[in-house]
Design a protein around this nucleic acid. Structure first.
Lengths: 246, 246
DNA sequence: CCAAAAGTGTTAACAGTACACCCATGG
DNA sequence: CCATGGGTGTACTGTTAACACTTTTGG
């Protein structure tokens, strides 16, 4: 077994430039942005104005910028695009990498490798996103109606992957908290689960899981009650900051 | 809400070439290749001969090839590199995308975006991999001893992510089957779980979960028994092909 | 007082865990 | 016949699921 004996520290090594013979690809980030509106899971789509796929619906996103130097970080680019297309502050929003799509023919303009991200927008902020930003014609679409739209590039595959991941992370991580306002009630959080899972869950049993989160110190009661036509619900908020992206 | 009215089918649209102003990055694939050897979780590392990071240990991988045209698919490139570095047939090996690493300064040679994959090699094939391939000095390293090595680039982060994913997928998917030979016994599969989880599990209880897989039609008994010093163990095999990559 | 919706109680079914025990083989 | 390790039985516990029931509001 050979020993590990670096000749010199990596930082001071001569950095031979990258051979131009290697393939160089344009890099984009695409965002699958979810929210819940009208008790329905929605994603944000924009309508394309430039070729290719003029008129088709597509995920918000764009090319990595070079900014003169080596260019920007992938995560930073995703946050920047999210802000540009939604007008929302880039911090404090759930954003995670989903996967990378790089089939040679996925973009007719040339070799483009796209890093897909998935983001969650709180429903109280969702109505404002379409208005702002430089992405004209950005609208929320119900995921149940996506089959009718012919989406640009391989964006349909990205959405499918994002939806699978959303479902999977729902019961393993605290991702549901990213889809309710800062203060919320038990039935509101339950509605998030029901919409994503597709089937309604038992109100009583859900409350017990909720109770466990309170005793675990994850959630605390907030002042006020919420009137909904029946018995008013208690209002809660998180104790620790909700999950941030990596 | 705007209607969806594409001007023309996407395939016949004029494909304006990609503006050169956009950042173009070199693309690599890096492979976190796991196996189990000597009841220990191991990963395959190569020792670098070229700058940067000469002498450091690194993940096997390499640049996407352009092959004259638009270049190869990401998954295909990962399989190709896996074959080149291990000498194993590219088909029938578990391979899945892990994540993409693209910090601007992660490679001193320039802007390089790396797509990390993770792969699993059956232990009966593992002893042969180091010999073949064009990657000189490829050896298996116990994951518990990686802390001592200073790894090239951001490969330590990739390995950490791969290990987390391996743990997570262990009890949600049939990934453990990719780390035993084609025929195997109950205690052999249990050993895989124990090594990855880090704690030994109850032989009796594990057998019952195993039984459930048999009644579910996932596993069937194979002829022969395995002698190990005590009561011989029955030998099993899969009924359906083990999980393939996407 | 009645409908609606939040929240509580109760119980049955199931899954996970611990551990005692039996079985088949080699030495 | 004994040590070794595979395989079975069983009791216990915690979690989930189903559903009846109580509570608090608005009309």
């Amino acid at each position: 077994m050979p020993r590990h004996t670096p000749d010199q520290p990596p930082d001071t090594q001569p950095t031979a430039p990258l051979p131009a013979a290697f393939l160089h690809a344009a890099v984009t980030v695409d965002l699958v942005v979810f929210t819940i509106l009208d008790a329905d899971l929605k994603i944000l789509l924009i309508q394309r104005r430039e070729p290719p796929f003029v008129g088709h619906w597509a995920l918000p996103g764009g090319f990595l910028r070079s900014d003169g130097g080596l260019g920007e970080d992938l995560d930073a680019a995703a946050r920047r695009e999210l802000q540009e297309e939604t007008g929302l502050p880039p911090a404090g929003m759930y954003l995670a990498q989903l996967g990378t799509y790089g089939k040679p023919d996925r973009d007719p303009r040339g070799r483009v490798v796209s890093v897909a991200y998935f983001a969650l927008v709180r429903p109280d902020l969702a109505p404002f996103v379409a208005a702002g930003g430089d992405a004209a014609n950005a609208t929320w679409h119900s995921v149940s109606e996506l089959a009718r739209l012919s989406l640009a590039f391989d964006h349909a595959a990205m959405i499918a992957a994002a939806q699978a991941r959303l479902r999977q992370e729902l019961d393993t991580t605290g991702i549901a908290f990213e889809l309710v306002p800062a203060t919320f009630t038990t039935p509101e959080l339950r509605a998030v689960h029901d919409v994503i899972k597709g089937i309604p869950s038992d109100p009583g049993n859900f409350r017990r899981k909720f109770q466990a989160m309170i005793t675990d110190g994850l959630i605390e009661q907030a002042p006020g009650k919420r009137i909904t036509g029946g018995k008013p619900a208690m209002v809660y908020r998180f104790r620790q900051q909700p999950t941030e992206s990596s």
